[in-house]
Design a protein around this nucleic acid. Structure first.
Length: 802
DNA sequence: CTAGGGTTAG
């Protein structure tokens, strides 16, 4: 029989005694009242209290028992009444009342009674200290706690087990592990609770290994109860030690502890954290009483283990059995974000409203995020506007949502956030900084930098890294380097960003120097930084150096090259005109080359005007049309363009048909330029923009001046299968030329101009821009799909390695 | 007649 059963039995006996007409006395009442208290049966307790009043005389013990009973039932008013009416009190009376307040969370009141006790000149005992330290712990009253500890030392109860256990709990609440450890070490008398508290303390502080170690120190010497075991199971989960987790589970079973709902829930969590989700589900299915936490835990487990569909299925099952709570929805929202399932997100949203959780801050923020990830940013905005309370996470969610799609609304929302008096934090700024990169929002970028400086975030590594990228992407290599140099601490991402920046500007030598400097600081290169450094070599024509890095990566750092690395080497060779070598390299690589690898070579062939190899590669690419990764249709389009240039119309049609069948559209080429804080976009042969006549006039004038300088149009750059005269027209309508001309018309003579393009610049435009830079005496910075070209006085910084 | 402790998220 359980303890509860015994207490209930005692009450039954009491009842029987009364029906027999026997009169309970002051020896009968205390255990009976205690039983009511432990069973938290307030109604029976009150009845017994009436009986006591009926008999007329309650002695000290009976009254103390009554205080305890009312305390356990959270009826402190009644407890207090009994206490106040007592003709005679002892320390137990005081302790019981203090205990009542403190174990029901009324720590302030508990302390007040304690001060009153002290004012009365009474001497606290170990029970008093134990309860008072708990109250100090609950209040976070470190000062008061220290005073209590001091008094303990003075009165000489410091060796007392109960006192020390209480002090341990208190220091644990203060997160003061060193005092816990000290008390623990000095204790002469320990019991299983002492060990429990220590094990729990280490768990709470995240020192899981330490708590597991303590458990093994304790095993065999002290009784390990189910609570100890559950702490250790939690610790095993946190350190993801499946072997240890299994061992403790087995230990628990061997000890004969039946798996109650609570410990089963902990097992589900432990197995899920250790990645053994099938064990989690086994525990779950075998449970007698599944509660809300059981369902939530397994759903969370599935989410943590990326089994999103299983989580969904379980959720459906759950709804038939238990009412989900807000934690269920928190987990399910992250399923939405992964499965990108708009319908399900909307369904959840309805459920959340129906159940009245729509005012929950975390769920509200999560919905913004989920809708945005599913591509329903308008729903995100609606949710945002509907929220009554917007905390920093709410703002960050909506700002990040717009930032992810590079929408300038992210800046507008940031401004609105600041106008409403909220101060952006590091995540806010880290998410908006990259937006500056692609909108040429140089002004916003500078403003953000100012804001970062004012807020004192400039020494944050993530912020620094984002600034390096922002400056390098907006054409400001100098500032990018400056930010890097001023960073107080740097991680490998900082170095990678710096090297990538050098690479984009064709500063290969500087990139190599940075790479060596980084190694000298003791940072070990990773696979990502090798991409950056080889790319940097590639963009500067440092073929030999690039190959050395590729070898170094394998030999010195034991990094197995992936497709990206092979693509880098192909790019390295091909960009410098070693097309045959690049082709041989592809044919000899151990991994199966995909579209991106062939595509890199193909676009280099185009750039080099080598139609012969281009034709061969194009055949390869088009043959594998179906098989190849079609996420990037650019390469197939390239192949079809090659065939078009060769007049092989049949092949062109085959590729186009196949792309059409797969519903793939070419990403149209466009360029953009910032003028007076506004961004102007141009697509090829665009005739519908302000001042297109002026722009065309300027291009015509420039064309005449260029011809004088010796420029001859490269009609091979036109991929359409049309007559040469039309080809000339098409060339002149290329989006980058329109953007450059528009930019020239609207900026001061002599100032540098920045133009961006989403695709690679064609050979002819590259040549033309060189001429323009010389004729108009302007620096023209063009960022294409993967690098910067600084045109100055008829020369391009890429040294034609583009 | 008085004690001490347990599960899920971000």
């Amino acid at each position: 029989m359980t303890h509860d059963g015994l207490y209930a039995k005692a009450l039954d006996l009491y009842h029987e005694m009364r029906t027999l007409g026997l009169k309970p006395d002051n020896y009968t009442f205390p255990p009976v009242i205690k039983s009511c208290g432990i069973l938290m049966d307030l109604d029976k307790g009150r009845v017994v209290h009436q009986h006591i009043i009926g008999t007329g005389i309650a002695n000290l013990y009976v009254n103390n028992a009554l205080i305890d009973m009312y305390s356990r039932c959270d009826e402190l008013g009644c407890a207090r009444k009994v206490f106040d009416k007592m003709p005679e009190k002892d320390i137990v009376s005081w302790n019981s009342l203090i205990s009542g307040y403190s174990s029901n969370g009324y720590y302030k009141e508990a302390l007040e009674i304690y001060y009153w006790l002290r004012n009365e000149g009474l001497v606290p005992d170990s029970f008093t200290f134990s309860r008072v330290s708990l109250a100090c712990g609950g209040l976070g009253e470190v000062e008061e706690g220290r005073k209590v500890h001091g008094l303990v030392e003075k009165i000489g109860t410091r060796r007392d087990l109960i006192v020390n256990n209480g002090l341990l709990s208190m220091y644990l609440k203060f997160d003061d592990v060193s005092n816990c450890q000290r008390i623990f070490d000095e204790m002469v008398d320990r019991d299983s609770v002492t060990w429990d508290i220590m094990i729990f303390a280490y768990c709470e502080l995240g020192l899981y290994e330490e708590s597991i170690r303590l458990f093994f120190e304790m095993v065999g010497r002290y009784e390990t109860d189910i609570l100890t075991i559950t702490y250790v199971l939690r610790a095993c989960g946190h350190v993801r030690d499946l072997k240890m987790g299994r061992y403790v589970h087995e230990y628990m079973v061997n000890k004969g502890y039946e798996c109650d709902t609570l410990s089963s829930n902990i097992l589900i969590n432990m197995y899920a954290k250790c990645g053994d989700i099938s064990s989690s589900s086994k525990v779950f299915e075998n449970m007698g009483n599944k509660d809300l936490v059981s369902w939530n835990s397994l759903i969370n487990g599935y989410v943590e283990n990326k089994s999103y569909n299983e989580a969904l299925e379980l959720f459906k099952r759950m709804k038939i059995n238990v009412q989900p709570d807000f934690l269920t929805y928190v987990a399910l929202l992250s399923v939405c974000k992964e499965l990108l399932n708009v319908e399900f997100t909307e369904e959840l949203h309805c459920d959340i409203i129906k159940q009245g959780f729509d005012s929950d801050q975390i769920l509200g923020n999560g919905l913004i995020d989920a809708y945005a990830k599913c591509g329903k940013i308008e729903n995100s905005m609606k949710q945002f506007e509907n929220m009554k309370i917007r905390d920093i996470c709410t703002w960050n969610s909506i700002i990040a949502a717009y930032a992810r799609v590079e929408n300038s609304m992210s800046f507008r929302m940031l401004t609105r956030m600041r106008m409403e008096g909220l101060i952006p934090d590091i995540p806010t700024l880290v998410s908006v900084l990259p937006v500056c990169s692609n909108l040429i929002a140089k002004r916003q970028g500078k403003e953000l930098h100012g804001c970062i400086f004012k807020l004192g975030f400039e020494s944050n590594i993530r912020i620094g890294n984002a600034l390096i990228e922002m400056y390098s992407n907006t054409g400001n290599l100098k500032n990018s380097i400056l930010v890097f140099e001023q960073m107080k601490s740097r991680d490998i991402i900082s170095w990678t960003s710096l090297i990538a920046s050098y690479g984009m500007y064709g500063e290969g030598r500087q990139a190599i120097k940075a790479f060596e400097d980084m190694k000298a600081t003791g940072i070990i290169p990773d696979e990502i930084i090798f991409v950056a450094i080889i790319y940097a070599c590639s963009h500067s024509g440092l073929v030999q150096e690039g190959r050395v890095f590729f070898e170094q990566m394998k030999k010195d750092y034991n990094i197995e090259p992936g497709l990206v690395h092979y693509a880098c080497v192909v790019d390295l060779l091909a960009r410098s005109g070693f097309l045959v070598e690049a082709e041989d390299f592809i044919l000899s690589m151990p991994l199966k080359p995909d579209a991106s690898i062939w595509g890199v070579l193909l676009s280099a062939c185009r750039a080099n005007g080598d139609l012969k190899i281009a034709e061969r590669i194009s055949e390869r690419v088009s043959e594998q049309v179906i098989e190849l990764n079609t996420n990037n249709p650019g390469y197939l389009i390239l192949a079809s363009n090659v065939f078009a240039a060769l007049g092989r119309r049949g092949q062109v049609r085959t590729i186009r048909t196949s792309l059409k069948a797969q519903g793939i559209k070419k990403e149209p080429g466009f360029s953009w330029v910032e003028v007076k804080n506004r961004v102007y976009y141009f697509k090829a042969s665009d005739r519908f923009f302000e001042q297109h006549e002026e722009v065309n006039e300027l291009l015509d004038d420039l064309g005449r001046l260029m011809a004088k300088e010796g420029y001859v149009a490269d009609v091979n750059s036109v991929v359409h299968d049309v007559e040469d005269v039309d080809k000339l027209n098409i060339l002149c309508g290329h989006s980058e030329r329109l953007a450059i001309a528009f930019g020239l018309l609207h900026t001061e003579p002599g100032t540098p101009l920045l133009v961006m393009k989403n695709l690679r610049v064609c050979v002819d435009c590259h040549t033309v821009t060189k001429y323009i830079s010389k004729i108009v005496k302007r620096e023209i910075l063009v960022r294409d799909g993967n690098r910067f070209h600084l045109f100055k006085d008829g020369v391009c910084s890429c040294g034609d390695h583009w």
